[in-house]
Write a protein that binds this DNA or RNA. Structure first.
Lengths: 196, 196
DNA sequence: GTCTATATTGCGATAGAC
DNA sequence: GTCTATCGCAATATAGAC
């Protein structure tokens, strides 16, 4: 009833699946890394894919929090800043989330449709609603599609985390630099880079 | 000397590796899909990894074209539009490129450092130089980091293609809609979404 | 709940014929 | 240049002891 190995397997699975994908890890390695016997994976999760699904479900659960940003109301501009902060914080607390996010977008497993796609869609929809709101209030320009703007915003922030591996030589990715990042991205999205 | 199977293997490898990753495809399936015998993979590429490297090299060769955008000179704003158009066109002509791009960023293979990372770095560096140029000319605001702006721009465009699978319900991804997309992204990046 | 031992399948690579 | 046949190994899953 203690199921210690279950937790150890989820933890090992999160790290290993994130780093090498569903097909890049063997059940042997998973159980070895969790200090469990190979049969524990079948016992708890019915096989490797079941463990992967459990890991995915846990990782994407936090996407529901987007609701809170929208329903606390207030200024669309503040909500956009809230989204940027929430996203960066989310990736700091879930260091492997983006691996699953992009890995599923490019090499979808059977769990993409059930777990990943709805989570992403919900965030983009919510952002688009916030932006459309700002348009109705006259705060934002109406000659831009709200959904295009929503993906532009999500893309700026997500790509920054995604590109970490390739851009380490170009700038620091330490949490201490997040504030200047937030300021820049918020400025670009709302006021653009143009002078004057 | 005809090496027909070599070409067939590269083509099959491009599609299959893009869809399921290096570890998600077997040599048997690759050769079956290319109508070649299983031994052809070793004969031409020295093994599955060698075929993967050849595919990667071919896919990322087009990144060198970023040079042309910069060295043809002219207005930084026009170069930025040139970058957006070039990127979208590149993904239309190389439908599998983004799969390799993000797959390597999140689950790097031994070829990431040699092929992928330099290609991405070069693009970000070039964009940052273009933006820094615009700052010196007084066209762009100087209170934003040029590299942050460069990743913001690259992120907007790349994420749009990346998220295709999850956002098909939200907007069309057909080439015919590219023009309105280019207009929106260019407007957001340069003038932002704010009214007035 | 956790282990060891094993059954079975499929893998990547290559030898050798043509 | 391309094939068939095969070797040796590692994969997943499970039976059965404790």
């Amino acid at each position: 009833m203690k199921a210690e190995r279950r937790i150890a397997l989820i933890e090992a699975g999160t790290r290993l699946f994130a780093e090498r994908g569903l097909n890049g890890v063997s059940v042997r390695e998973l159980s070895r890394s969790a200090d469990a016997s190979i049969s524990m994976v079948s016992y708890y999760f019915g096989g490797k894919e079941g463990l992967y699904a459990a890991v995915l479900e846990e990782q994407f659960a936090c996407f529901d929090q987007i609701e809170e940003i929208r329903k606390q109301g207030g200024d669309p501009l503040a909500m956009i800043e809230g989204y940027i902060r929430w996203t960066i914080r989310r990736h700091r607390t879930h260091p492997y989330l983006l691996r699953f996010y992009t890995s599923e977008l490019t090499n979808p497993t059977p769990y993409f449709a059930k777990i990943v796609s709805p989570a992403i869609e919900k965030v983009i929809r919510t952002l688009a609603e916030i932006i459309a709101d700002g348009m109705r209030r006259g705060q934002f320009r109406t000659n831009i599609h709200a959904v295009s703007a929503a993906t532009a915003l999500a893309g700026m922030v997500s790509y920054h985390m995604l590109s970490t591996l390739a851009t380490q030589a170009l700038f620091g990715h330490a949490p201490v630099e997040d504030e200047s990042l937030i300021r820049d991205y918020l400025a670009i999205f709302t006021r653009g880079i143009q002078a004057g």
